[in-house]
Structure formats: structure tokens, C-alpha cells
Design a protein around this nucleic acid. Structure first.
Lengths: 223, 223
DNA sequence: TTGACTTAATCAATCGTTTAAATAATGATT
DNA sequence: AATCATTATTTAAACGATTGATTAAGTCAA
């Protein structure tokens, strides 16, 4: 985003400028209120270039979700892949699997609380309410694989099927425990008297969710 | 909407028709995509009546949130008051307090997931991405009692202070477990195959969160 | 008859997209 | 190296469609 040599051709530079401007504009104004003229002006680029490079405003919107889907996948993908191979081996101890789960949760908390996630979350949450083709992109590229690993992991730890509603509900409630600190960020700051949510605060959040998950998965409570 | 005598004058009838149509249209399409013509057509009235009765499209939008805010306020009051007196007695057993907590959580889950809340939630979640000052006040007024009673109950059950960060974090994670089903509505739909969240689905959600909370508050895990 | 309400028509503004011409980079040929 | 053809990219201007709002005339109940 800063290295002028990283984007070789002219076209690549304007594509990147439009993409970054689109993330900011779409997240701040929503799809319809972010007009082609505002998008082009924010990118410092001629309006017709949206059609030239992305086929139109809609194409730029979808490209935004391809971008953030790839970025989020890169943030959680490695940890999920590690756990995946751990499970495929079939010889992992319960403790190893639990640790793998907590690592994924840690990464998720870190991602949700990161500053750049603020605008991403607005875009995705809007799509969650009224999903379009853009949601499919994020779902297939990021959400579906991650949730899949999460369910497999929980199913193994609870000796249940990854497809069972109980497991999937549990996966969502775990997701919710991390998500709430992004969605209700202001409520969190007010309630805890935090001026900002950084390393120290994130550590406290992780610790709390760790304890919750350990309790939820304690053997004596597996119904 | 059903009783023709409830709304006396002609004007009151069109105001109500526009309000109900606006809730549906704004939640389904968003503010900008729900055009004045669509709103009027959905209400079965002339377009100019939006301006006549509400001053304009923006005024109708504000009226929708005033309507929702009024309907939501005080919906959790009775249950919260009952638990409050239970705690004030000081002689409640641990089991009674736990039951009280689960009742509160049930009410909160029921409120978040109730079918009529479905369209409200879309409006609220969308608006919360870029909250106006007026909306923020309504939202805080709605959330703070829930968080407050939740913290007091958790503090008693964990023999801790309601002001302690651990208790408040735990309250937020519990809130997140209920919120996730509305915030990540499409993820829920795809993962569980739920097209609608109604009595059966709400019962499953409550059961899952109950189990989680019981595990989180099990004595042997209280650190 | 008076005032509340409704209607159809029209307003300027803005929307996303398209066009044709201008400019810039690229590679081959001389 | 210099020139040219070719492609890639950018530009300003315009397109028809739709937006929210307004108007003046009309209808209704009291």
C-alpha cells in the first residue's frame, strides 16, 4: 500500500487505490450511499475507471469482499491448517486438541480487535443482515473453512458429530464470545473503563474466553 | 394494522400503514435502497403523504426508531426486578440465584431472537455500524440494565465484586453468545439450516447457552 | 364552508454507466 | 537508438433512469 514499486503497472496502482477507497467508503456510508463519484474522488481517480477495472460499482464491491476474505483467511488460515493436520494424524491427545482450539480462538480475538477489522466488520455485518453475492465470497473463502475446522475440533473433544446441531450451536456461541468485543466495542470500553483495547486488554479477553471454553469442554459436563 | 377502529382518523391510518411498511422496507433494503416510491407503494398510499405526515423520508426513518425504542424499553424490567429482590433478600440459595440468572438470560435471548425482533434487529444492527447520537442513547438505555443485572448475579455466584473486570468480561461473553445469532444471522442460517428463528430454534439456543453458563459457573472451575 | 387529507404531475439533483477522444506505456522494426 | 504500430489506460462529457421533494388541484369528513 506504500511501496510504489510493489504495484508495477499504472492499472495496478489505480486498482489498489480504488480498492482501499472502496473499503473506507462502503464501510462508512454503506453500498448505496457510497456513490461512484464519491468512490472515484476518494481514490483520486476518474469515475469511469471503476467500470474499466472492475466492470462497475457492483464489481468493485465484490472485489472488496474478495480482498478482505483473503486477508482474514491469511490471518486465521495457518492456525486452522495446523489443527487440521493435527486431527488428520489421528494421534493427537486431548490436551493438544484443546490447545489448538485455544490458539484459533486467540487468533480470532486478535483479529476481531485489530484496528483494520473495524471497517471490515461493518461491511460484513451489513451483509449478514441482507446477504448478497458478496457474502458468498467471504463465506466460501473464509467463514466456511474456519467454522468447519472449529466444528470438527469441538466434535472430537465432545465425542460428537461435526454436523450435529449441538456442536454447531456451541461453535457459534464461542464465536459470539469473541465477536461481542468487536460489535459492542463501545459498551465494552465503557463497562470496563478501558480507553483503548490493546495488548493488555486483549490478553484479559483471551483469558476470560479461555476459561469459558475450558469449562464448556470439561469432561464431567459433557452431557 | 388489523383493527380499523383502533386508528380513528384517516391520517392516523396512513401514518400507521407507512410506519409498518417502513419497518419492513428499511430492514429489508436499507435506508437508501428503500425509496420513497417503494415505501409508499408498500403502504398502499400516495408518495407525497410521506412528506405530509413525517416531513420526508428521513423523518419516517426516525419515526421508525422512535417506535422500536418505545416498544423495546421496559421489556426486560419485570424479570430483572424479580431477580433484584431475590438478591436483596440475601437468603437466596445458590441454585435459586443460578435459576434466576438463567431466567434473565432466557428473557434476553428471547428478546434478541423473537420473530418480531427479526426486522428490528436488521435495522438496529445496521444503524449501530454508524450510530447517531440519538440512537446511541436508546441503545445504551436498553443494554445497560441487562448488563447491570447480569453482572450482579454473576458476582454473587462467583463470590466476586460486580465491578471486577473478570465479572464484567464474563457478562459480555454471555451477552455475545445470545447476540451472535442476530449479528451473524446469515452465518447462523447457513450453518444450522435455519431459515427462521422461531420457538423451536430459540429453545435450542437457550439450551446451549444454559449448558455453557452452568459449566462456566461450576464450582470446581471458579478460579 | 372549513380544514384535514389525498392525488397526479412535475421539479431539479443525483444516480451508474457508456462513449469517443486523448494520453501513456510497450514492443517490434528499422 | 529512433520510429512506428499496438495496446493499455485515462479523461471529460454525456446518457437515460431514478432519486426525494414539491406543487396545485382535488376529495373527504365535520
Amino acid at each position: 500500500m506504500d511501496d510504489p514499486e510493489a504495484t508495477s503497472s499504472r492499472g495496478e496502482a489505480t486498482r489498489e487505490a480504488l480498492l482501499q477507497a472502496a473499503i473506507a467508503q462502503f464501510s462508512e456510508l454503506g453500498y448505496h450511499a457510497a456513490s461512484s463519484r464519491k468512490l472515484a474522488a476518494a481514490a483520486g481517480v476518474n469515475q469511469a475507471l471503476i467500470g474499466y477495472h472492475f466492470g462497475g460499482k457492483r464489481g468493485l464491491y465484490v472485489a472488496v469482499f474478495e480482498h478482505i476474505g483473503a486477508a482474514m483467511s491469511g490471518s486465521l488460515g495457518p492456525a486452522a491448517a495446523a489443527v487440521q493436520t493435527l486431527m488428520d494424524d489421528g494421534e493427537a491427545t486431548r490436551q493438544e486438541l484443546l490447545d489448538g482450539l485455544l490458539v484459533i480462538v486467540d487468533r480470532a480475538v486478535g483479529m476481531f480487535t485489530s484496528p483494520r477489522m473495524a471497517s471490515w466488520a461493518k461491511l460484513i455485518v451489513r451483509e449478514q443482515q441482507n446477504p448478497s453475492e458478496a457474502f458468498d465470497v467471504v463465506w466460501q473463502r473464509f467463514m466456511s473453512p474456519i467454522v468447519g475446522v472449529l466444528c470438527r475440533l469441538l466434535a472430537t473433544l465432545r465425542r460428537d458429530s461435526p454436523e450435529s446441531p449441538q456442536i454447531r450451536l456451541m461453535a457459534l456461541t464461542i464465536l459470539g464470545q469473541a465477536l461481542v468485543f468487536r460489535i459492542a466495542r463501545e459498551t465494552t470500553r465503557r463497562l470496563l473503563g478501558w480507553d483503548e483495547i490493546e495488548v493488555e486488554e486483549i490478553a484479559a479477553i483471551k483469558l476470560c474466553i479461555h476459561q469459558n471454553i475450558r469449562a464448556m469442554l470439561a469432561e464431567e459436563h459433557a452431557s
